[in-house]
Amino acid sequence: MSAIVTSGLSKTYKSLGKAPVHSLRDLDLTVDENEVFGFLGRNGAGKTTTIKLLTGLIHPTAGRAQLFGVDTLLPDARRMVGYMPEQPYFYEYLTPKETIEFYGRLRGLTVAERQQAWEQISELLDLRDIADRRIRGFSKGMRQRVGFAVALVGDPPLLILDEPMSGLDPLGRRMIRELILKMRDRGKTIFFSSHVLSDVEEICARVGILVSGKLAACDRITALVGDVPKSVEVCATGLTAEFVAGLGDYVLAREERKEGGHRLVVENTEAANQLATEISRAGGMLLSLHPVQESLEDFFTRIQEGTQISLPEEAQPAALAAAEE
């Protein structure tokens, strides 16, 4: 069974005297069980709207969403979700232990289950030292830990995390990354939105990219960015400026390196072979030669800019249309 299924999910905000705002349009998305799914898009693209629809905080204008086959408008669907908002806000006068206790009661856990939940979660998130301190004085990182802890109360099979790494220092980001992977290893499905593309690339199997409320692409990262190198970078030393300037048009970029020698970029490995031969003939020394893969960031930038993109068939057909808008 799929963890998340949405069909034609749309959300339009209407306010008196203003033009309607289409925050999300016809979202068809499926996230499988035990998958780490990254949900990307610029600010205002509709990520948080989607997450709020999935958690039942807002109601769809059209379409529907299901979590493990249960409509998101029903409380039973939320039994299967642990949710962490972008900036988790809790009652400031409660301690982390009291907060876990409170959410445990909302989930209908017994006293013994709540105690067990605290033991497990506090150990996992290293909350014991701050167990009895009021949240009021907590730093962003500490609040994020409490937010993650609340999402784990009741051991839900699906975690929905809205920008879990937002505003965190490198150590905090790393902690969240490791937690997500740990949860995946425990069989959970993780659906999270993020701006930090390097983190997404590192931990996600699949991603969906929203552009202006429409799903522009959705597939495995390797399928989106491709596994063929987009160019090959060659570094060499002992070359004269005349030789470098005289190289043919097959060299796409050429520059002097600060540390000495030259950096040359060619389109593919065949061109790199030809260049290596020429460097050798000219008495130069080849320092390095490595293929440059397209990163998720490159792909993300291209899709946002609406430049020509070629996607595999299984990626969303809405991609080009959305990019054109």
């Binding site: 905080l57 939320r78 949710y83 908002p85 988790p88 806000y89 809790f90 009652y91 959410y103």
Partner: peptide, 14 residues
Amino acid sequence: DKKTLYTILAQPLH
């Protein structure tokens, strides 16, 4: 306003 509602209404309660 304080956004404490987000995590509460995301729980299985009516």
